[in-house]
Structure formats: C-alpha cells, structure tokens
Design a protein around this nucleic acid. Structure first.
Lengths: 253, 253
DNA sequence: CTCATCAACTGGCTTGAGCCAGTTGACCAG
DNA sequence: CTGGTCAACTGGCTCAAGCCAGTTGATGAG
C-alpha cells in the first residue's frame, strides 16, 4: 500500500510548493541531485518531476533546470467584450483592452484571410448550406508581451462580408470587426458561447508555446444580430493558464 | 532534426487514430509488441504511449491494455439550468435533466453539509465579512451511469438559509435548491460564471476517476437575486471530457 | 575592454534488464 | 455444470548506464 518512490518524491516536492517553501520561479533540485538525495535512479527522480509537470506545477527548461510555475492572473473575457460602448469609448479591441488593463503589451496578428467552404460544424451554426455558400475565414493570433495567448478563427458568410474590409483586409479600422458588421446591418446583439477544455494538439502546443500540463480552453462563439440571425462564428483556442472566461447573464424564465 | 523514436511512434499511432484505423475502444498493440515491431526498447514504446495519454487520446488499463478514448458527447450546461420554467415543468434538477436528455441515468449525492467560515474568495463574492458571518457549505457529487461527472460546492450565508432545508437537509424537495431560495425572498435572476481550466489535483483525479490527460473545468458560479444581491456561490469542478458549457446571452451596450 | 572558447552544469531520450500487480481464459477437480 | 487454480498475457515502476543537446559562466586571447 506504500506509494512508489517516484510518487513519494513528487508528493514531497508538491508539499514544498504548497507550503511556499518553493515559490513561483524557483528552481527545483536537478534530476541528478534528487536521485542522489533520495537514493534512487535518475530515471525515478525524472519520473517524479514528470508527475509534477503533468499536474501543471512545474516546467522543465532544457539546459537550465526545472522551475515552479507561477499562477498567472487570468485574462478574463466575457460578453462585455462585444459591447459597443467598449468599442467606442476605448477604440480598442476587447483583447487589447483586457491585456492593457493588466499592464501588458497586446498585439494581434492576422495571419490569413481566405474564402473557403465551411465545415459542417461551422455551417450549422451560421445556418447556411455548406454545399452552396462559402465563408470568409480569418485567422488571428493574440499576444501579450509577445507571448502567444490565443488563436481565433472567425468565419462569416461571403454574402454578408463581400465588399467590406472583413472579406480581404487585415486592418479593420476604427471599432474593429464588429463595427464593420454593424455598418452592413448586423449589430451584434446576442452571443452564444460553447466552452470546453482539452489538452492541446501537438501543433497547438508548439504554436502557442504551451508547456506540458497546461490544457486549452476552446470556445465556439456565435454572434447574432438584432434579428437573431447568426453572422459570424469564431473558434477560440486559448491557453488555460493565462486565460479565463467571465460571464454575467440574466436567467430567463 | 529527425524526431526521436518515441515521438515517431506516437505520431504514427496518432495518425492511425486520426485516420480512423483505430477507433474508440480499440486496443493498441501492447508495449512489448510495439517495442519489437519498431525495434526499440520497451521503455521507448512505453514513452510513445505516454505521449498519447498526455494528449488525452488513449487510456492505459493495468493488466488489460491501452485503449483509444472515445469522444464523448458533452453534457452542456448553461444559464437555462437555473430557469424556473425548467424547474417547474420537469421537476428535475438541471443536472438530472441534461443527463436524462442523453439517455443516461443521473444521480446526485450530497456528501456533506456544514456551517463554516468562508474563504476570502467566497466571502468576496457573497459580499460578506468572513470575520463576522458564517456560511453553509454543501458538497454535492454528480454522477451519470454511476460515473462521477462533477463536484459542486455551494456556499450561502447562514443569515439567509437559517431555518430552511438548505441549512441542514440533503433532500431539497420539489424544485430543488433554487425553489427554496425563492421561498425566502431570493429568486435567482442573474448569474455570473467565472470559467477556467486546469489539470486536476491528485485528489480530484482520484475522486472523479479522471484518467491521465484529461483536464477539469472549474466554474465559480454566483447567483444573484431580483435586487442584484448575491446569495449563493457554487464552485463546480467537472471533468472536461464529459462536460462543457453553453451560454447564450445578450450583449449589453 | 570585448569576444570566442570551453568545461561543467542542466534536461531529453534511449537501452535492456528485472520484478510487481492486475486481467483473462483455459483447464481441471468436484 | 460450478468453482478454483494457474499460466500467460497486460501495464506499472525501477535500475544503472550512456549519449545527446541546450545553457551558463569562467577563462583567456585579441
């Protein structure tokens, strides 16, 4: 019934972290030191560290050591991110506003704009027929202090965005994306957000520079206009150690 | 630049899963077979499987083998879960309703009811002074087909629930918790949900029987009444491979 | 002073061996 | 037919050794 050595070592280290004997940024003893200290093989010490890494408590850096991960203040996103007043008063996109609120430097990079045929998942949410209608796909990467935070892929029907900057321009101009939609008769009025969490794919882990033991939040966002018509779907993938969601809403009868 | 063997093997297996050559429930070749097939040590084959497990693609079962994990249909929870009409029309708690909608058998187990002094986090959301006021803490476990799905810990001020079943009874009676709150003058009117995701603690992984590579969603839910007064905070921890959230809400100006 | 070099550290990954502990199904005694 | 035993499988975990590849800081050449 006694736990295997790797787990015991992990538990001990975890205790030191929980009790504050090791704090964010501190370096753990090296694998070789741990192995000697506990009288085990290096592989066993390594396994202990892996257990902690899988819990998201530490991050190994090749050549440097293993470090205690800090708890970051989360960037919190909610419905107000789409509010017109925010757009008009700050002139900032919602992501920029939230990042700046924490004293960090935001940047957004639109990496591609394409006209594509939508997946079934997207077509369903836009209430269009994927055999007939095409959509514009815009892929945006969001950074804070040059660290990648989120990827957002926005889809909207070609029939709506044709001729607007949304269809082909990386720069959205004043008021950003939703101001452009409003100009063509689609003011964002209600949203639906489907939230789930999972481990990143290897591509996501690499692209977002996500360390081991950190999941991603996946948010499928659908924006509907004043008539309840969906006009854009955005799929966000955000690293869960830096991002969270914060929704306030009425309970309808 | 060529990837290490363990990664190559993992990539190959992942490819087989992605292409549908291995489907949910299928058994992977055993570690020893993989090792021989690829001409590597057993540890290396083992490492490859570990990589897949960390991505949440497979689950190892001691003595049985390694199996491809299925994508489950998610239980989706949103604001309508608190709607009075749902309460009154079905007589079911929102969790039960959602689980039954998927043809599974729900059960809820109230494991403890205590009067405690609230943490700072809870006190802040209830707008009370943790030095003066106590709260009732109710811990509920939610199951579908006897598999644990969620843990919910509800806190509400003693001054509100004193004398009601909320303060001391596991059975809430018709209409469940929120009907009782309504009887003492607090009809749930708006909610705030703070959502984040992380890897489970060892205790959570054990209690919820969460396999490796599956994160949890943590939802801090605050319920406010018709006057905007917060009267209950519930912290949900749900396994992210079975649960998701689905919110619809208006965008306020 | 500046800059390249290099030794001594770090983790990354593999080998091949061994023992332990669940699971399963065949087989056999009753 | 029933029930127990047991062999052959599975993954869980460890060992001791080795090589590779980043990082860092001291050292010394210019």
């Amino acid at each position: 019934m006694t736990a295997p050595p790797s787990r015991q070592i992990a538990r001990e280290l975890r205790g030191q972290i929980d009790r504050g004997e090791l704090v964010a940024g501190d370096k753990l003893p090296s694998e070789r030191v741990l192995a000697e200290r506990y009288g085990v093989a290096r592989n066993t010490a390594r396994e202990a560290i892996r257990l902690l890494a899988d819990q998201g408590l530490v991050t190994a850096e090749h050549g440097r050591g293993v470090f205690v991960r800090g708890k970051h203040r989360l960037l919190r996103f909610g419905a107000e991110r789409y509010a017109r007043t925010l757009r008009e008063s700050t002139g900032l996109s919602p992501f920029r506003a939230e990042v700046e609120r924490q004293g960090r430097v935001p940047s957004v990079n639109c990496v591609s704009i394409e006209r594509v045929t939508p997946s079934a998942e997207i077509a369903e949410r836009l209430l269009i027929d994927s055999d007939v209608e095409t959509v514009v796909r815009r892929e945006n990467w969001y950074f804070a202090d040059d660290e990648p935070m989120q990827v957002g892929v926005t889809y909207s029907p070609w029939s709506i965005v044709e001729g607007t900057p949304v269809a082909d321009s990386a720069k959205m101009g004043k008021g950003s994306l939703y101001a452009r939609f409003e100009e063509v008769g689609h003011a964002i009025t209600t949203i639906r957000e489907e939230v789930s969490a999972r481990m990143p794919t290897p591509e996501e882990a690499h692209g977002l520079k996500i360390p081991d033991g950190v999941p991603v939040l996946e948010v499928v966002h659908t924006g509907c206009d004043q008539d309840g018509v969906p006009f854009e779907v955005t799929v966000f993938v955000m690293r869960a150690d830096y991002n969270g969601l914060d929704y306030k809403m009425p309970v309808e009868d």
